[in-house]
C-alpha cells in the first residue's frame, strides 16, 4: 500500500467510524425521546402503557373544568366523542384553553386511569383541531356509517 493510499484508508475508516457513532447516538437519543400519541379511546380501552411519557389529544368536555380553590391545580375531561379521560394539571393553562376546544396534553397516565399532565398545548387559532384528533374523529364517523 502506498503512503497516499494508506492515508486515504485511515481517513475513510475514521469517517465511517465517526458517522456510525453519530448515527448510533442519534438513534439512541431519538428512541429515548419520542412521545407516542394516543386518543382518549385508546387510553380508556387500556391500550396505553401506564407511567410512560406520552401525548393525548382530545376536546375539552363542556362543564368539566374544575379548579382547586387555593392552588393552580385543575382537572378537566378530555374526549374524542367516544370515551372520556380525566386530566389533572397543575399550572397555568394556555390562553386558548377553553371548554369545547381541541388541546393536546403531555404527561403520564397513572394507575387510576387519570392523565397527569405536565404540559397542556392549545393552538392559537380557535378553529384549530390537532390533526391527530381530526383524524381520529374522521375514523369514528366513517366507522359509524
Amino acid at each position: 500500500m502506498t503512503p497516499k493510499r494508506k492515508k486515504r484508508l485511515i481517513i475513510i475508516l475514521a469517517l465511517v467510524f465517526g458517522a456510525g457513532l453519530a448515527v448510533g447516538l442519534t438513534m439512541f437519543a431519538l428512541s429515548q425521546n419520542i412521545n407516542l400519541f394516543y386518543s382518549t379511546s385508546q387510553i380508556a380501552n387500556n391500550e396505553a402503557p401506564v407511567g410512560k411519557r406520552m401525548r393525548m389529544g382530545g376536546m375539552v368536555v363542556d362543564g368539566s373544568v374544575k379548579r382547586a380553590s387555593d392552588t393552580l391545580r385543575v382537572s378537566f375531561g378530555l374526549t374524542d366523542y367516544e370515551s372520556e379521560v380525566t386530566v389533572v394539571f397543575s399550572g397555568i393553562l394556555p390562553d386558548l384553553f377553553r371548554e369545547g376546544q381541541g388541546i393536546i396534553a403531555q404527561g403520564k397516565l397513572d394507575e387510576n386511569g387519570v392523565f397527569q399532565a405536565d404540559e397542556v398545548l392549545a393552538k392559537h387559532d380557535e378553529n384549530y383541531m390537532p390533526p391527530e384528533i381530526a383524524e381520529t374523529m374522521k375514523k369514528r364517523q366513517e366507522a359509524q356509517q
Binding site: L25, T26, N33, I34, N35, R55
Partner: peptide, 24 residues
C-alpha cells in the same frame, strides 16, 4: 422529519421532544 416518516409508514403518531435535540 422523523414524526412524518413514522406517520407515513403507518407506525403511529409521535412527536420528538426537546430532550432529543438537547441530547444531540
Amino acid at each position: 422529519l422523523y414524526p412524518l416518516l413514522i406517520d407515513a409508514l403507518g407506525q403511529g403518531k409521535i412527536s420528538v421532544g426537546p430532550p432529543y435535540f438537547n441530547a444531540v
